[in-house]
C-alpha cells in the first residue's frame, strides 16, 4: 500500500488522539470524549503495525526490528523533505 497514504492517515489519527487527550486532561469525566479517544487510538494502533511491517520501525527502543539490519537508522528522517507528504484536502 502507498506509503504516503498510510503515513497521512496515521498522522491524522495520531493528531486527533493528541488533541482529544489534551481535552481529556481537563475533562477527565467526559465519557463521550474517552470513547472517541479510544476509537482513534485503536485504529491508529492497527495502522501503525501495518506501517512498521512495510516501512520499518517508528519508535525508538519500543518497536521490533523486523529485518536483519537495524533499519531504525534508515533514511529519510522526519526532518527531511523526502520523508514527508503534502496533506491536501481529501482522505
Amino acid at each position: 500500500m502507498d506509503r504516503d497514504r498510510i503515513l497521512k492517515r496515521l498522522t491524522v489519527l495520531d493528531f486527533l488522539a493528541v488533541d482529544l487527550a489534551l481535552y481529556l486532561d481537563s475533562h477527565p469525566d467526559c465519557k463521550e470524549g474517552i470513547k472517541k479517544y479510544n476509537e482513534v487510538v485503536s485504529e491508529a494502533d492497527g495502522l501503525r503495525e501495518q506501517y512498521e511491517n512495510l516501512f520499518g520501525p517508528l519508535f525508538s527502543y519500543r518497536s521490533y526490528s523486523k529485518r536483519d539490519e537495524f533499519n531504525w537508522t534508515d533514511d529519510p528522517w522526519p526532518w527531511e523533505n523526502d520523508f514527508n507528504f503534502v496533506v491536501g484536502g481529501e482522505e
Partner: peptide, 15 residues
C-alpha cells in the same frame, strides 16, 4: 520521553 519517527504535521518544502 520516547521518539516517534514522524512529524506531528508534515513539513515538505520545495523552494
Amino acid at each position: 520521553w520516547i521518539y516517534e519517527k514522524k512529524q506531528e504535521f508534515p513539513v515538505k518544502i520545495k523552494q
